[in-house]
Design a protein around this nucleic acid. Structure first.
Lengths: 118, 118
DNA sequence: ATACTCGTACGATACTCATCGTAGTACGGC
DNA sequence: GCCGTACTACGATGAGTATCGTACGAGTAT
C-alpha cells in the first residue's frame, strides 16, 4: 500500500481543445507521420515497442508525446506496455477527411519516392 | 548597364521535389494558414501588400518564402509588386484533396473559435 | 526478492524558426 | 534626375525542438 496504485493517467486534450496548427505540426515530421500511418493501418492499439524507428527510445517517447498533446493519438497504460491508438473519431468530427487525406498523401509520396524499393 | 536588368526570378521547387512534410509544416502556422486561405478564396494572384497580417513586413517576407520553398505558393514579380498564387494544380496532382481538406478544417476551426465574433 | 523489460524523466546540445529592426535594391511616377 | 512604394537581405534574438545518454519507476517473470 505504500504505492497508492497510481493509475498513471496521461493528459489528453479534449476534442474542443484540439488545434489544427498543432495537428499539422505533429504530422509534419517523417518519424511521426510513419507512426500515424502504421497506427492507422493496424486499426488497433499498438505498444510503443512495436514500432521500429530510426531513433532512440528517448526520442521515441518525445514523438509520441507530441502526437498525444496535439490530440492525434490516445495513450493508455496496459500493464507494462503503453498502448497507442489513433483518435480517429475526434479528428474526423473536428476536421472531416483530414486524417485520411494526409495518410493517403503520405502513402502516395512513399510510393513515388520508393518505386520498387521493397 | 551596370545592372543587367535582372528578371529577379525566384526559386520554386519542381512538382516532383515537393515534400509532404514541408507542406504540412508550412501549413502548421496560423499566419501562413491565413495567407493560404485568403489566396484560395481570392482564386487569383495577390500582392504581398494586400495582406493585413499581425506581423512586420520582414516577418511577412519570411512566411511567404516558407510557403514558396515548400511548394505551396508561386511568386512572380510584376513590376514593383510580387504576386502570389496558390500552386493548386501541382498540389492536387501530388496530394489529392489535401489542400481543400486543410482549408476546410481551418475554416471549421475559425467558425468554432469565433462563433459570431465578426 | 531478483532480474528483466518497457517506458519516463531529466539534463545537455545543437539546430531550426518566428520575430524584429535597419539598411538596401528594384521599379514606377514626378 | 529625385522620391516614394514594394519588397529583400542581413544580423540579432529569443523560443522551440529533435536528438541523445543516463538514471529511474512500474510491471512481469523467474
Amino acid at each position: 500500500m505504500s504505492t497508492p496504485a497510481t493509475p498513471r493517467l496521461l493528459e489528453h486534450p479534449a476534442p474542443g481543445e484540439i488545434r489544427l496548427e498543432l495537428v499539422l505540426h505533429a504530422l509534419s515530421d517523417a518519424v511521426r507521420l510513419r507512426i500515424v500511418s502504421e497506427l492507422a493501418a493496424a486499426e488497433t492499439e499498438l505498444s510503443c515497442s512495436h514500432f521500429v524507428l530510426p531513433v532512440t527510445k528517448s526520442t521515441t517517447t518525445h514523438h509520441f508525446r507530441v502526437l498525444r498533446e496535439a490530440g492525434v493519438i490516445r495513450q493508455d497504460y496496459r500493464g507494462t506496455a503503453k498502448l497507442n491508438g489513433l483518435r480517429r473519431t475526434d479528428l474526423d468530427a473536428l476536421f472531416p477527411g483530414l486524417l485520411d487525406t494526409v495518410l493517403a498523401a503520405a502513402e502516395a509520396q512513399s510510393a513515388r519516392l520508393e518505386p520498387a524499393g521493397a
